[in-house]
């Protein structure tokens, strides 16, 4: 099979099946608290691992571009700016940074 077709089909199955299982067995599922805690922690650790060091490769030549973006987004989130606005402002800030960089 074609490489990309295999990737898409495989990812579809491994993503859909875990989502589907609760729909089929919702009445019979009961997690032990420890398993639930472990699974509840995964979003935090997954996001941490996704951001770091991936954010530094947003621009392959300029590592600090991603860092600036992450810091801007974190400051806005700290000030409780709505999520959609955070994303838009961060993109706009980076466009501005890119426009200034050639002058240094």
């Amino acid at each position: 099979m074609d490489y990309m077709a295999l990737v898409i089909l495989g990812c579809t199955l491994v993503t859909f099946i875990p989502r589907l299982i609760p729909a089929l067995f919702i009445d019979r599922l009961n997690f032990p608290p420890k398993a639930e805690k472990f699974l509840n922690l995964i979003p935090y650790t997954a996001l941490a691992a996704l951001i770091c060091p991936g954010v530094l490769t947003v621009d392959n030549q300029l590592w600090y571009i991603g860092l600036i973006g992450a810091v801007v987004a974190a400051c806005l989130a700290w000030k409780k700016v709505p999520m959609g606005a955070i994303v838009i402002i961060t993109v706009v800030v980076l466009i501005t940074v890119y426009s200034i960089v050639p002058f240094f």
Binding site: A73, M83, I86
Partner: peptide
């Protein structure tokens, strides 16, 4: 990444 940071912060 901005969204991830916004969710995590």
């Amino acid at each position: 990444y901005a969204l991830f940071v916004a969710i995590l912060t």
